[in-house]
Amino acid sequence: MAEAPALSVQGLTTEFRIGGQWHAAIRGIDFDLGKNETLALVGESGCGKSITALSIMGLIPKAAGRIAAGKILFEGQDLAQLDEEHLREIRGDRIAMIFQEPMTSLNPVLTIGFQVAEALRYHRGMSQAEARTHALELLEQVKIPSARQRLDDYPHQFSGGMRQRVMIAMALACKPQILLADEPTTALDVTIQAQVLLLLAELKQLYGMSMIFISHNLGVVATIADRVAVMYAGEIVETAAVGDLFDRPTHPYTEALLSSIPRVDRTSDTLMAIPGQVPAINRMPGGCRYAPRCALRQPVCERPPALAPVSGSAPTHLARCWVRAGGDR
């Protein structure tokens, strides 16, 4: 941890306007992303994991959303303060992103060779021929079979798994320091998912990248992450090294999430469901946001808990829970 982080997010709060009022979709998000580290943001629909990534990329729609507070420090700059022109220089160059549904992120009327080469021409000023040669290398690197013949094919001629490989090739074109991967394998079948996860891990090594991996699937997270941040209702509720998190899930939400997964590798008679549902963005409880669904709820949970060290675990293991990681109580 002595080395400076590749990215430091501090107190990030992003708000959206609903019926004339601003509501926080994510609140006080803090994390450092180490060099060569894979940090997984995990949580269910609406927990704010994608909003966190879009905030980092400066892709929050201006009409209805804003970064209300916090810093996103990258190479000595605060991305939250940069204007669109400067952000565009960074996006796709030093920070790149891949999305869940590759078909909606690829342009259907342009060849994939053109689309992979585009970033190189824009950011690196390469000639068309030069960029094309480089695009071919990238497609080979992401293991697209007979890449040379496929350079002039269109996205619809590729399978879902192959499209995701094209997306990865596009993202890697400028050798980014940071890759944001938002549910990149969710739309894929399990055998293809395994291939893409393996590919991402290899390429991360090869390029010396840091990666923020967003997923709702704790199985996938256990496979790829070095460190995990569990999100609930717009906040990080627990964060730890991957081993510590799965060995000692501490926040009641993390624990419940783990015991609600039917596992393929063991027979478990009990399956725990979490009662109720995530509160709406404009009806967040004032205290602990998980309290209304929590079995361990106590009077103290009426006040908002902070992330506090989990006693008996590594110092980097933090949880936002009065009962399980009360700290000063």
């Binding site: 399990v190 055998t191 998912q193 395994a194 699937n217 704790l218 199985g219 996938v220 997270v221 256990a222 496979t223 790829i224 992450a225 991957v242 081993g243 799965f246 783990l258 997964i261 596992r263 393929v264 590798d265």
Partner: peptide, 13 residues
């Protein structure tokens, strides 16, 4: 299929 199905256990990776 069985081997490719992710399991919530980092040791199973």
């Amino acid at each position: 299929l069985r081997a490719a199905s992710p399991v919530p256990d980092p040791r199973a990776r």
